[in-house]
Amino acid sequence: MHQQTRLPDHAPHSPADTALDAVERTALLTAALRAAESRRPDRIYDDPYAAALCGDLGPELLAEIRAVTFPQDAERTLPSTPDYNAIRTRLFDDLLQDAAHRQGLRQIVLAPAGMDSRAYRLDWPGDVRYFEVDRPAVLAYKRGRLAGLAAPRTDHHAVAADLTSPDWESRLTAAGYDPAAPSVWLLEGLLYYIPEADAHRMLDRVAALMAPGSRIVADIVNRAALTLPDMRGLLDVFAGWGCPWLFGEDEPEGLFARHGFDVTATQPGEGAADYGRWPDPVPPRAAGPVRRVFFVHGAKR
């Protein structure tokens, strides 16, 4: 059982904040990162709903991440989480938009959805069906935060299901998802939080729901990112919150190939995964041991 995220005694939190468990609260961190990016004059995307979605707790989680990432009395050794998150969000925006507008895919699945607001802030073709799968507490929190503030800009379906449950697929299809029709799936901020065996099962289950030619988008870290001493500060924060990083893969192309996908893996700062924002050198794939993050995208065979 994961321990609950520690909360400062002096800080007020809404009942909705504290109803989320440790893993679920990482979605508030992502929303806080997106809210901070949206306030920057040089922002590379704008999420007008992130500030509402991150709640009271999200900024506190972000403050912990900033404290270890940018120490006041030492050189930064950790990757820049704000820049990483900004690049990931914009790149995944672009990939999903391309799948819907240019490639003509009409089913979009976010698993898990967390505090994502792409259904609310991006333009989608009129016949797209957009599915957000996440635990009931997460979807209830999100629904409450967005009530009266925003409405989806597409045919939106919230699917209340735990991705570790044996029946989430049936709940998705009951909501209108058609496994025989092409789709694009986003697995954002998921794979490194689950054990290796569960990651393989997840990719098998997702692949079984996708028609050939469907697209997949995900992020994953390498194995060294879980063990290198210069990652310790960041890893300790997540472990202290009760949601440690558990899985990394050095060859993401091979990982996804074993589950029926042909993918490209890109590191932040490479090619389109930069947007002028990545502050660190990009290590060649042959170099090691170094920490790596991969943005993965490709198609189901």
Rank of each mutant, 00 (worst) to 15 (best):
Asn85Met: 14
Leu78Cys: 05
Asn85Gln: 07
Glu64Trp: 04
Leu57Ala: 06
Leu57Phe: 09
Ala99Lys: 11
Arg102Lys: 08
Ala74Lys: 07
Ala99Ser: 11
Pro82Met: 06
Arg66Met: 06
Ile65Phe: 03
Ala86Lys: 08
Ala52Gln: 09
Gly104His: 15
Asn85Ser: 12
Gly104Trp: 05
Leu91Ser: 04
Asp56Ile: 05
Arg106Thr: 07
Phe92Ser: 11
Asn85Ala: 13
Pro71Val: 08
Ala86Asn: 00
Ala86Cys: 10
Arg66Asp: 14
Asp93His: 12
Leu91Lys: 02
Asp93Trp: 01
Ala52Phe: 01
Glu60Asp: 11
Ala86Leu: 05
Ala99Glu: 08
Thr69Tyr: 01
Phe92Trp: 07
Val68Ala: 00
Leu95Tyr: 06
Thr69Leu: 00
Ala67Arg: 12
Arg102Cys: 08
Asp56Val: 00
Glu75Trp: 00
Asp83Ala: 15
Pro71Ile: 01
Gln107Trp: 13
Asp83Val: 00
Gly55Trp: 01
Asp93Asn: 11
Pro82Gln: 05
Glu64Thr: 05
Arg102Trp: 09
Gln97Leu: 14
Arg76Leu: 03
Leu57Gly: 02
Val68Phe: 01
Leu96Asp: 10
Gln103Pro: 05
Pro59Gly: 03
Gln72Tyr: 02
Arg88Ser: 08
Cys54Gln: 14
Arg106Ser: 09
Leu105Asn: 07
Arg90Leu: 02
Leu61Pro: 08
Ala99Gly: 14
Asp94His: 04
Pro79Gln: 11
Phe92Arg: 09
Phe92Ala: 13
